[in-house]
């Protein structure tokens, strides 16, 4: 039996007690998946998994607060579940976790770049062991899977769900790259270059808040301080400074909480590389507090606690 069948069977067994189970189905074309809310066995037929099932479905969990739901998670997504549990934003008893052992997901952006022209509507996608065969307008192109994997998969150290009620597939022995070349390259730039980069990038931002809405840790929803009058942190002025300020709000609220699922960057319609900020902040958190969000259950987020003596914070003498 395939992994998909195992998963379907597992879901079938639990569906009766659940409001729904959140998975993926094919979206508007063969290349794009979309979330699927499984409420009946009939819905199960549409369920897909694999490299195209990119969404972090944990984003939807807090919306079901008070109801018992199931969710299908990849390794990285399971970190978001753990973080939500650690922050008591969801109740462990209210969620059934169908964990996957994930071989990586694609980056739509990389596929788009690898194809000769903007694909528009993709007719079919054949997923092989190490390549993708994408047919657009009658023409087929074969892409090496390793070339179009999402950045997060290249440095992934948690391919298998860390927490789950049912674990589907064969666990991996992860061998992640130490760091991402693009991250290192960017960090090596001078302050002036980085400043100019964000200035330019943020002038592109249309403040659609897709990054926020896709984020599994952004639980404020309608009460985000980016769009409130009291408190009034941001004006609606669409200028680089205000747009950057919003990103600073986002990164500040994610400090010690971000599970690096990459949904913000994936959701961005104007391709702002938000993960540059996230990964950098996460490394600072790891350096100072020796913890990573969503890796360990029952861990207090670092900014909600303190030590009288902080071993890794240098009290600057003045």
């Amino acid at each position: 039996m395939s992994q998909l069948d195992d998963l379907k069977n597992a879901i079938k067994g639990r569906l009766g007690e659940l409001e729904c189970v959140i998975g993926w189905e094919q979206g508007y074309d063969s290349l794009h998946a979309t979330p699927l809310f499984i409420r009946s066995e009939a819905d199960l037929d549409r369920l897909i998994i694999g490299p195209l099932a990119v969404h972090n479905l944990v984003t939807y969990l807090t919306g079901f607060k008070g109801k018992k739901v199931g969710v299908v998670v990849k390794g990285c997504d399971s970190r978001s579940v753990i973080q939500l549990l650690n922050e008591k934003l969801i109740n462990r008893d209210d969620v059934v976790i169908f964990g996957l052992c994930c071989d990586g997901v694609v980056s739509q952006r990389k596929i788009r770049a690898a194809l000769p022209a903007d694909p528009g509507f993709v007719e079919s996608v054949e997923i092989g062991a190490s390549d993708l065969k994408v047919t657009v307008a009658g023409q087929a192109a074969t892409l090496r899977l390793s070339d179009v994997l999402a950045d997060k998969c290249l440095i992934c150290d948690t391919p298998d769900a860390i927490v789950s009620d049912v674990l589907i597939g064969t666990p991996h022995t992860p061998a992640p790259a130490a760091s991402l070349a693009c991250q290192d390259e960017f960090e090596a730039k001078s302050d002036a270059e980085k400043f100019a980069f964000w200035q330019e990038t943020m002038s592109r931002c249309i403040r659609c808040y897709a990054c926020r809405n896709a984020c599994p840790m952004c639980v404020c929803r309608d009460h985000c301080i980016a769009t409130s009058r009291d408190p009034l942190w941001l004006s609606q002025d669409n200028s680089p400074a205000e747009n950057m300020m919003f990103q600073m709000v986002h990164v500040s609220h994610l400090a010690g909480r971000c599970t690096e699922c990459g949904e913000c960057e994936r959701a961005c319609p104007v391709d702002i590389p938000l993960m540059l900020l996230r990964r950098y902040m996460n490394r600072q958190v790891k350096d100072v507090f020796e913890m990573q969000a969503g890796k360990v259950l029952d861990q207090t987020p670092p900014l909600l606690t303190f030590k009288v003596q902080e071993e890794r914070i240098n009290e600057r003498g003045w």
Binding site: Y280, M281, Q284, F306, V308
Partner: peptide, 22 residues
């Protein structure tokens, strides 16, 4: 405890600023 929380928050900001070019 206020300054204990402040120390963590401010340290995170100070360490974060370099990526923004500030």
């Amino acid at each position: 405890e206020g300054n204990f929380y402040a120390r963590r928050r401010l340290e995170m900001l100070k360490r974060f600023l370099p990526i923004t070019g500030i």
